[in-house]
């Protein structure tokens, strides 16, 4: 937080007068006025505690709707006739309650909002780690997306094109062109433990646009910063309805899953990552990828310095 406090301060004063309270407790900003545009929203469930799986589905939908509405609605990002790529994390052959993949109801709500905002086509797809057909199926995302008329795309490495990422570590690499040639990529990660990066949220989710990412792990922060810079994120939606707290990124044990019932959305990818890793109990500056993102000026770790709208949903 220290390395960013000045930038955070500037952003703060440019927005509204805020009060910074230092310490382990979250920093509190003055709430935004109803007509002010937020760059980040955090929608948190404030209804009945301990919902069952069926209720969580409905909660996920509500939270997503509120988080996007808080940013000014999907029409802020989606123009009429746009082709949208929704990029969830569908890495693993795991069911939604394992929190290894993005919640299918979050994904389907985003698809619906895009279509309502006038998108021509919404495509959904990820470069999976386990077999794609299986992961798409078990994650529930294929069925949810198809039901809304979105195109479920099985990425084809033989149709990938080489792009110059112009990164510090990543130079020319094969990338799935359908993703980056769409008008807007909506990054929809799930918050998870990660055995090397400690935590994975938005930035790391962009690894799915690269065909061969195995060597990334030898210097994750740099590679992830490189690909994030290349992707020029405009909107990310963080799924923290369920989060994976251990044995990530694969998971598979319900004992490792927690349910914060939260969705954060925004335009600052580093801020959203910082928020995500805090949910896992880490300080953002202690996570290599987040610190590197802030250092590379891809965003701010101090998400409370942004025009932030916190919404209690019930």
């Amino acid at each position: 937080m220290h390395c960013c406090s000045r930038r955070g301060f500037l952003a703060q004063s440019a927005a509204t007068a805020g009060v910074l309270t230092l310490g382990s407790k979250p920093l509190l900003a003055a709430p935004l006025a109803a007509d002010q545009q937020a760059d980040m929203t955090i929608a948190k469930w404030a209804g009945a505690a301990n919902p069952d799986a069926k209720e969580i589905e409905a909660i996920a939908v509500k939270l997503t709707e509120q988080a996007i509405a808080g940013l000014g609605g999907m029409q802020r990002f989606v123009k009429k006739g746009d082709v949208i790529w929704v990029k969830p994390n569908i890495g693993w052959d795991r069911t939604p309650e394992m929190a290894s993949n993005t919640n299918p109801h979050v994904v389907s709500t985003i698809i619906r909002l895009c279509l309502e905002a006038g998108a021509k086509t919404v495509k959904v797809g990820d470069n999976t780690c386990h077999a794609a057909e299986k992961s798409y199926h078990s994650s529930g995302i294929a069925a949810a997306a198809k039901a809304l008329g979105a195109e479920v795309v099985f990425l084809d490495p033989s149709r990938a094109k080489r792009f110059d990422v112009k990164g510090e570590n990543l130079k020319e690499t094969a990338i799935f062109p359908e993703i980056i040639e769409s008008d807007l990529v909506i990054n929809v990660p799930v918050v998870k433990h990660h055995s090397i990066a400690t935590a994975t949220v938005c930035m790391k989710n962009y690894m799915g646009v690269v065909v061969n990412r195995k060597a990334f792990h030898q210097d994750l922060p740099t590679c992830i910063a490189d690909i994030t810079r290349f992707m020029k994120p405009r909107i990310c939606v963080v799924d923290a309805v369920r989060i994976l707290t251990d044995h990530g990124p694969t998971g598979g044990d319900l004992a490792d899953v927690k349910t914060p019932l939260t969705i954060a959305a925004g335009t600052d990818i580093v801020a959203l990552d910082a928020f995500g890793v805090e949910l896992l109990g880490h300080k953002p500056e202690s996570i290599g990828t987040v610190a590197k993102g802030a250092k590379e000026k891809l965003g701010t770790m101090d998400y409370r310095s942004l025009p932030l709208r916190e919404i209690a949903v019930s």
Partner: peptide, 16 residues
């Protein structure tokens, strides 16, 4: 002497 975790992350056993 560099990190790499590809085998570990793909291991499908729930507790690895």
């Amino acid at each position: 002497g560099r990190d790499c975790m590809v085998c570990e992350e793909h291991c499908p056993i729930p507790d690895k």
